[in-house]
Amino acid sequence: MSLATLLGPVAERLRRSVVQVRAGAAAGAGVIWGAGGMVVTNAHVAHAARLTVVGPDGTAVPGAVERLDPERDLALVRAAIDLPPVRTADPAELRPGALVFAVGHPLGVNDAISAGVFQAIGALPEGLLPARAVQRHPWVQADLHLEPGNSGGPLADALGRVVGISAMIANGLALAVPSTEVRAFLSEHPPLGVAVRPVFLPGDGGGGLRVDRVLAGSPADQAGVLPGDVIVAAAGAPLRSAAELARTVALLGRDNWLTLDLVRDGRWRRHQARIAGAPA
């Protein structure tokens, strides 16, 4: 039996749980992760405030970003779409050479399949990628052909169980966010819901994190944080990086309040953000 004959039915089943995630003119893929229209995709796919989620039958519904983690390159999108959730497996159990396949929309071609083999899980070998920040992530690495448009789609094992979310290509190597990272992302506290970058305040005001974007409905949004604010401290501690902010949020207990010191229009302000528990 040929690979194509064997792969067909497994891929067909997974395709029912793969959506298209459109942000303006750009489109990536998404995976139905749970009931209630829970769509997991890459943060770099869900980069617009308004998203459209398109099911395999062409049904298009609006989607809203509920959680965003640019460092892990993951996003949770909520959409009123009723599709079967995927089954998942731990990529750490794959052996090198095991078959994996991806479903996505490479260069706009809908629900295309590409097949290959699993190589490794973990940080990339030194020298394979110039960007050290990307190198350290625990990637699922596979010998598989991906194109733009595969981003956010599933990488699955020979049983059709999702082991990762296809995220990028490095030297031709397909990189996916491990399903275990997706689970951690979904079970952790929601991030504050801001996209920030480090800035220096005028005069001797020190440094802080300038808010470029606030996710609708996020803890930051509910706390009244606005784009343009500069966060100078969280929980009383000064902030130098987005990672420090994420850590401060992650270390909070469930249903806790986070004190944020902001500078807006040259004035200091204090806001309280309520960090809720994990989504259902």
Partner: peptide, 17 residues
Amino acid sequence: PRTSLMALSDELADAVA
């Protein structure tokens, strides 16, 4: 069929090992 795909996958992983 999906068990057969798994068998092929196992065979490849065995060849690698």
